[in-house]
Simulated assay, not measured.
Amino acid sequence: MHLEKQIREMAFEQGWDYCGFADLTEHHGYMEGFCGAFIRRFPRAVSLAMRLSDAVVDAIAGQEQDKILSFHNYYYYAVDYLQNNGAVKIAHMIERSGWLAYPVPASYSVYQNRKAGLVSHKLVAGLAGLGWIGKNGLLLTPENGPRVRLCTILTDAPLRAGKPIEPACGTCEICTRACPAGAIKGREFISGEADDYLIDRNKCYDFMEKRKKDWGIEIERCVCGLCVAICPQGKTRGNK
């Protein structure tokens, strides 16, 4: 319990708005299919989420080039930089306490064919009870919807795990209808299965690549973010 309190306090000091703990053991088989037996060294994980600026997210609803590029720099460089540095510090503290700790970089693809990272941050966050995976394929928190960025620290520390939250998208199809790439399929998340049935990643990726070409820019990703901006679960009161 003492370590849990230390982790939470350090997480909030580093700027995170959410901190939870996940039990990965029942999902090791699924996760091993991606990152190998390595994952079995870590029965637990720390899930961390940082709330995004409403003003920045709201500004991309119009899909204007200058706002999109500003969002890209905020999203991938500023927020992820803070998370990655903070995760290293927390992992170091966990290891000083005698446990293994593996900080997984925020939003960094290592499996190019799947366009995915070492582990699914949103799956871990869902297991930790920080939110649920919505029809848009994103983690939706009760307070801020998808307007968060996620980070994960794998560990063998015996942390008390949270409980998953039931999905609350219901009959809402706003993201499905609005997706300019036609990538969102409008289906409910099923725990323990690959989420290809939620999102067509290739359509999303191709849309971003075409946008880069049309705009004549050279960045690794030209993120759209519309599914984040329009989700009613996270919209600010003045924009609902």
Rank of each mutant, 00 (worst) to 15 (best):
L48P: 01
A49L: 12
M50T: 14
M50Y: 13
R51S: 15
R51Y: 14
R51K: 15
R51T: 11
L52E: 15
L52M: 10
S53Q: 07
S53I: 04
A55C: 14
A55N: 12
V56S: 07
V56D: 06
D58A: 15
D58G: 05
A59S: 08
A59C: 09
I60L: 11
I60T: 06
A61I: 11
A61L: 15
A61M: 08
A61Y: 06
A61W: 10
G62F: 10
Q63C: 13
Q63W: 11
Q63N: 12
E64I: 05
D66E: 14
D66W: 10
K67R: 11
K67M: 15
L69P: 06
L69A: 13
F71C: 07
H72T: 09
N73F: 15
Y74I: 03
Y75F: 13
Y75P: 05
Y75S: 08
Y76R: 10
Y77W: 09
Y77P: 07
A78H: 15
A78D: 12
A78T: 14
Y81C: 14
L82R: 11
L82W: 12
Q83D: 08
N85M: 12
G86M: 03
G86S: 10
A87M: 09
K89I: 14
A91W: 00
A91E: 00
A91I: 00
H92N: 09
H92W: 10
M93W: 00
M93P: 01
I94A: 00
E95G: 02
E95P: 02
E95V: 00
S97D: 07
S97I: 03
G98L: 04
A101F: 02
A101Q: 04
Y102W: 09
Y102V: 03
P103K: 01
V104K: 00
P105R: 01
P105H: 02
P105E: 02
A106N: 13
S107F: 12
Y108T: 15
Y108A: 15
S109P: 08
V110T: 06
Y111R: 07
Q112S: 12
Q112Y: 13
N113H: 14
N113E: 15
R114Y: 11
R114P: 11
R114L: 11
R114W: 08
K115N: 13
K115R: 12
A116P: 14
G117V: 07
L118Y: 00
V119T: 04
H121F: 04
K122S: 11
K122G: 10
K122A: 11
L123G: 03
L123N: 05
A125T: 08
A125L: 07
L127A: 04
A128D: 06
G129E: 05
G131C: 06
W132F: 08
W132S: 05
W132T: 04
W132D: 05
W132L: 05
W132Q: 06
I133N: 06
